[in-house]
Amino acid sequence: MGEIMIKLENMSKTFVSGSGEVEAVRNIDLEIEKGDIFGIIGLSGAGKSTLVRCLNLLERPTEGKVYVDGRDMLMLTNRELSVVRREIGMIFQHFNLLMQRNVLDNVAFPLEIAGEKKKSAREKAGKYLEIVGLAEKAAAYPAQLSGGQKQRVAIARVLASDPKILLCDEATSALDPQTTKSILSLIKNINRDMGITVVVITHEMSVVQEICNKVAVLDHGRKVEEGSVEELFRKPKTEEAKKLVFSGSAHIRRMHSSRQIRVVFDGKSAFEPILGNIVLELRTPINILYANTQTINGNAEGEMILQLPDNEEIANKMVQYFKEKNLGAEEVNYVD
């Protein structure tokens, strides 16, 4: 166990509005270690954004405790909170840059807030723009940048206050896949080179697979599952987690009403020609509906959706066979 950076104890947040109470997050217990890239995944409306806003008290939890780097966040005065917030950087889906300031002054902004003189703030800001690879855009205004560039500026702005934690609230959801990749790799580098703990809020499993080492699944405000990303990918335990993990192949499965099985394999299972062996042994062909390979924490993980034959007896034997081979096999008959 490493050092704990963020700790939530039985935290809940309820919004009171004219039409009644909404429990956005309920009884969350969570520990995030220093140096983690921790994913919090859930469908929209699951309470992810509320949860992440409770970490830097943009939202105040109605119940429970929030500890950041050992400090009880709810006990801080406003002044102390402002100082602590500088250690918790946050980037957003829509970047949230100051549109009337140029790129350099956007990055200098947190330094100005911290009381630095404009000139030295700008000098330092230039340095952070170099880190994110946008030094040549210093004089441009946000409106002149692409989405990916805007997010880089937002990251430089966060780095300028020398944070210990970086919160990413759907930071790549407005970006195309290529740009998403480059932003995620930048975040990964920041985590590795500067030792910044990262919390990633997303609804996309691919984002979690790309950079996270641990993940929690959120559904209707509750944490329903938590573990390493490999575990979640191989054997999601809850229905909610399955929905997220299987989302990549949903369109394929929707077209076939027959029994289907999802098989997950890594480099180790490649020594045995399992599919071939099954077909030979049971003398029944098997149909591959979907196959995909992803890199999770540097390991290649493959996933396949197979259509099982109509003969129930043979189908059951096949399921049995996959399970014996410890391939994280699971029937995934599509239900809407």
Partner: peptide, 9 residues
Amino acid sequence: EAAQSLGAG
């Protein structure tokens, strides 16, 4: 919100 998260009063 971004400004608040950066510690602006």
